[in-house]
Design a protein around this nucleic acid. Structure first.
Lengths: 389, 389
DNA sequence: GTTGAACCTTCAAGTGAGTTGAGTTAATCG
DNA sequence: CGATTAACTCAACTCACTTGAAGGTTCAAC
């Protein structure tokens, strides 16, 4: 479907774009790199890389970072991504609020905003976005530095822009969300689900830096799965991959949905059953320190369920690592990582691993919003032959 | 890892190669196509496509197929893949035998061979492959028409050629299998596992023709998963994706490995427990017609387990369809497809599907061997920017 | 039946990007 | 200090795609 609509044919111009992405991607991966080194890694001639670098320098995408001494021969001048070369906007649209974050090309957070909503219909949200843009500008984010925006919305979004699919936000299923957002923001927009953007956040500025193939379990309302393959988001055939919350796992002699066991809602329900009221993430954190029996039971049950999920993910996808991230306090994520049993029966159980099989995310609670921005940065600094759809 | 070793940089030569693949891929997908049509689909200029086609014609890769009348204007000359343009060899190395199949570029089977082995160490197998090549030639497959070979081996093969990993075939873990096979066969070799090649067989000449994103459940000794994403095999980070047999599924109040429920061995064991001896696939087929209680029980249990697998695959990967294939009689595959409950709680449960959610494969028992050859054809007729590793 | 619009295809000139090979500069090693 | 090694640059070259004009062929409208 997608391939017939795009124009994947290669010509000089697209080759150039692709090679630019290759150069930028290499520099980002390595932190800094010299021309000759990039040429060797990419298979391009040094001359070609040299030309590209001088363009990137002139356009302000990279800066001289230093010289590589210690070897024989003329010391290589190394280059690094210029953090201020551009900025990306991440927007998360929830039923009750719009969150926004601005980051620079190196993944540093420039600014954050939150505007409460009473309704989240398109006609309510779009004007709010304009206000957000203005606020960002007020906080010092140059509007012409913005190279794009990532938008997180709940519900199956689909890559096709087809309307008619059920969405949890009212009114959005009937319109072409991406086009409307692009018009309002005046920026190229990518729409993704929370788990996928969270994965990108971990890749660009969190625990999965430099990892090209991994899976990300995201604690939002339920439990989502973000898949990164070859350094890019993997969306499946229709862009709806990653609904891991729905899969059946064995529990207490029966079968339950994974997200009925391992999710913030599951925890909150467990605690409520025990008469413990938790409203905010802070409540969950405070209670974790005390660790009443209901909490301990949930940790037990959730980590057992996560163990099943890990076994499934590893055997199906063979990722380099699995990251636990999302709207749970870091202590709890770390606790879950520690408790989750790593199945012996797994292709991931090999001696020569570069990363632990399961790790805790590092971007914190705003993973989805930050990831929406990270998605844009990741795309800008990666080679791609076809335009994003 | 892989990306730093390959040379993904784009230049005129690689652009050409990529665009050739694009043209060939379009023609294969459509059956036949005209120059202008391909130009529109690929975003290339008609002139560029014209040049590529005339090269392909001169080299014998495509032939004139007809003219598209009925529209206004000069009728387009259409071209089709020339089946005899090349041939691919598929080899399956088992502990007790080597199977081989030759196919042409349109996926027609040219010839098949089977040579029994007493041992399957490299020094036993490699000479047998030379004999196979000779036999193929004797049966009319021109040796210089061969464009490559795909090889299926049991056990985690890994894409890296790293030795030291456990293999089910003795002696193969210690050597660089691909290099040894390339030396012996004198052909570019791709090594894959059975489930992935079976998926390719279904894509090139079976039930998944024209489908770019799907999953394939393969009944071999156990149960394997072949993943096709964007028209190519998806191997995961380390090339070992697809070990679905190991995942836990709920069954009879407990947890069991999927392949202890849904696999040929599971069926054979069930029947053996009931005093029914089954040695060959034919036995299984005969017995299916009679359908004794043990058989019915297994069908029940296996399809329930497959239902779980379907739910997991759909929610995790959102494929266009799932194909059931492998070394079970077609009747049984069809029966399993019919019995397997399709979970309502799935992102795949959408109204606008182009394909059924679960379908039976069509390449039959030799799926893995044929798929090894199909892998080569698929690669030759698809655009790719980086060389296969 | 004639005219014209629509469409495919080719020719020839032009452009952009990567490659090649020689030459320059600057560290390190002996 | 000179030889060696390595990064980098200059200029000429090549390759593949694009552009624009021209030539053909079919269908449809008048």
């Amino acid at each position: 479907m997608a391939s017939t609509l795009l124009t994947p044919g290669s010509n000089a111009e697209r080759s150039r774009l692709y090679n630019r992405g290759l150069v930028l991607g290499h520099i980002r991966r390595e932190g800094e790199a010299g021309r000759a080194e990039i040429a060797r890694a990419s298979g391009l001639s040094t001359q070609a890389v040299s030309n590209i670098i001088s363009d990137l320098l002139a356009e302000g995408w990279v800066v001289e970072a230093g010289r590589r001494l210690g070897q024989r021969g003329l010391p290589a001048v190394t280059y690094a991504i210029r953090a201020e070369a551009g900025a990306a906007l991440g927007v998360e649209i929830r039923p009750d609020a719009v969150l926004a974050a601005w980051i620079d090309m190196s993944g540093h957070v420039l600014h954050g905003e939150r505007i409460a909503l009473s309704r989240a219909r398109p006609e309510d949200v779009l004007p709010v976005l304009e206000r957000l843009l203005a606020r960002g500008q007020g906080a010092g984010v140059a509007i012409d530095a913005l190279i794009g925006a990532g938008v997180v919305m709940p519900g199956p979004v689909g890559r096709t822009g087809l309307s008619g699919l059920a969405t949890e936000l009212p009114g959005w299923a009937e319109i072409d969300a991406r086009a409307a957002l692009e018009r309002t923001l005046g920026l190229p927009v990518t729409v993704e689900n929370d788990a996928n953007t969270a994965a990108m956040a971990e890749r660009v500025m969190g625990a999965a830096q430099g990892i090209d193939d991994f899976a990300c379990l995201y604690f939002g309302a339920g439990l989502g799965l973000g898949l990164v393959a070859g350094g890019a988001v993997f969306g499946g055939a229709f862009g709806n991959a990653g609904e891991i919350g729905h899969i059946p796992v064995p529990a207490r002699g029966g079968v339950q949905r994974l997200e009925d066991l391992a999710s913030r809602m599951a925890l909150a329900r467990r605690l409520a059953d025990a008469g413990l009221r938790t409203e905010t993430v802070e409540d969950l954190e405070t209670l974790h320190a005390a660790c009443p029996p209901a909490y301990a039971d949930w940790l037990e049950e959730a980590s057992a369920a996560l163990g099943h999920a890990v076994q499934i993910l590893e055997n199906l996808l063979d990722p380099e690592t699995i990251v636990l991230t999302g709207a749970l306090p870091p202590v709890i994520l770390a606790d879950l990582v520690a408790r989750t049993p790593l199945p012996a029966l797994s292709v991931a159980n090999r001696p020569d691993r570069r990363h632990p099989r399961l790790i805790a995310g590092r971007v914190g609670r705003r993973a989805a919003t930050l990831g929406a921005a990270a998605l844009v940065v990741n795309t800008a600094l990666s080679p791609r032959l076809v335009a994003p759809s």
